[in-house]
């Protein structure tokens, strides 16, 4: 059997002397769609950062694709929080999405025809063809969010990590972003951090609440996926 895409075992993380994650154990298999909910400061973003290799575990272990976090950058697509960006930055949607093709193997080279084709495909998937030359500062919140998702898709990832993709976006745009993510879940493993508890239960296959400790909830309707059993299980910790 292939290793799970993400496997956390008794993971704890301390940041500046504060325990942000404590004894977190869960795994995400191929094709899963995990929704991570929880209060602000509950450690959701930290958990994503650990999976990405940006933050280290203080105790316990994390394996991503069977290896150390950060070992397979090309297999992970990351969509950070949109609100952190400098909207005045002179960059077009195309150049933003091209960043998804970065890799250390291509140091000193310019983007090639394949890179540009993948970018066009990602922009098409996100429905941004009309806006491809637009400066990001002229996009709406929802459009910028879709551009950031397109950037992650351009790298042809197997695992997609999304951090609050619908934060402060109006309800109508939220639905279009969830529809986009819904299409992607057919071919990708997804971890989604969000506040929209009600909305995501319609889309995800697993929900976990994270408040320093993690509680995993798995609905039983997804038979056929590995490790899923019976009715809603609370706090299984395997």
């Amino acid at each position: 059997m292939r290793p799970p895409v993400i496997a956390c075992e008794q993971l704890s993380v301390d940041l500046g002397g504060v325990r942000v994650l404590d004894g977190v154990t869960f795994s995400v298999g191929e094709g899963d769609f995990l929704g991570l909910v929880g209060p602000n400061g509950g450690g959701k973003t930290t958990l994503l950062r650990v999976i990405l290799g940006l933050e280290n575990a203080s105790a316990g272990s994390v394996r991503v694709f069977g290896g150390q976090p950060g070992s397979f950058p090309g297999r992970i697509g990351y969509v950070p929080q949109r609100l952190f960006f400098d909207r005045e930055f002179p960059i077009s949607v195309r150049d933003l999405v091209l960043m998804g093709r970065l890799s250390k193997k291509k140091l000193f080279q310019h983007y090639n025809a394949l890179d540009r084709r993948r970018v066009d495909e990602a922009i098409h998937a996100a429905g941004l063809e009309r806006l491809i030359e637009r400066r990001i500062g002229d996009l709406s919140g929802g459009e910028l969010q879709r551009a950031l998702i397109a950037r992650a898709l351009a790298g042809e990832p197997e695992l997609l990590l999304l951090d609050e993709p619908t934060a402060s976006i109006d309800p109508q745009m939220k639905t279009t972003i969830y529809d986009l993510i819904e299409q992607l879940k057919e071919r990708l493993t997804i971890v989604l951090v969000t506040h929209d508890t009600e909305l995501i239960t319609r889309y995800v296959t697993k929900v976990a609440t994270l408040h320093v400790k993690l509680d995993l909830h798995e609905p039983g309707s997804t038979s056929g996926r590995e490790g899923f059993t019976g009715t809603l299980v609370q706090n299984p910790f395997f």
Binding site: L52, G53, L54, G70, P73, G74, I76, Y78, P80, M99, L102, S103, K104, L107, R151, G155
Partner: peptide
């Protein structure tokens, strides 16, 4: 941060 996630030094 994204550059780091992409494997750049």
């Amino acid at each position: 941060e994204y550059a780091a996630v992409s494997g750049l030094k």
